[in-house]
């Protein structure tokens, strides 16, 4: 089911495929190593610290701070109709980092490094296939969870 993740998917098979199901259910998940307790975002199956192979998904609140961002005008295949779009890199309060599109509750023109944001799970409503992602929104933005 990991092909659900992202507008274009290059990566259908992974040990953390359950991440996409959780995202569809409105939950942003990192991973916790069953052996040493290391928490990772993005989630990973194989622990880089203790080499443990067992992990459990752990839910993230998704609040964070913008580290950097860009507005992409020249887009790759599959994104042509969406230009320009703004991508931000966010340091999550709970550790780890993600990259996501700027969502509708933020003023893209006023986006700034250091700005507080909320990461919100999203379904591409306009697409027939199940496609999920997340967007950067204003702090306090809420959403439904399954």
């Amino acid at each position: 089911m990991f092909e659900w993740f992202g507008l274009v998917s290059y990566c259908p098979h992974t040990k953390v495929a359950g991440f996409a199901q959780h995202l569809k259910d409105g939950r942003l998940m990192g991973s916790r190593c069953d052996a040493c307790g290391r928490v990772s975002f993005p989630p990973r199956a194989d622990c880089p610290d203790c080499r443990g192979a067992a992990f459990t998904f752990t839910e993230y609140g998704g609040a964070g701070t913008v580290v950097t961002f860009t507005r992409i005008a020249a887009a790759p295949a599959g994104f042509e109709g969406r230009t320009p779009f703004t991508i931000g890199v966010v340091d999550l309060d709970e550790g780890g980092r993600l990259l996501a599109w700027c969502g509708g509750t933020l003023d893209e023109a006023a986006l700034a490094i250091g700005q507080r944001v909320q990461v919100v799970p999203r379904l591409f409503e306009e697409l027939e296939a199940i496609k999920v992602h997340y967007t950067l929104e204003a702090p306090g933005t809420t959403w439904a969870k399954a």
């Binding site: 274009v8 290059y10 790759p76 994104f79």
Partner: peptide, 24 residues
């Protein structure tokens, strides 16, 4: 061009090579 980054976590958002350097 759509596959220059980490295809698992980044490319699904339409990242590009100039995009990464733009963020730097």
């Amino acid at each position: 061009m759509g596959r220059v980054g980490d295809v698992q976590w980044e490319s699904g958002f339409g990242t590009t090579f100039p995009g990464y350097y733009a963020m730097f």
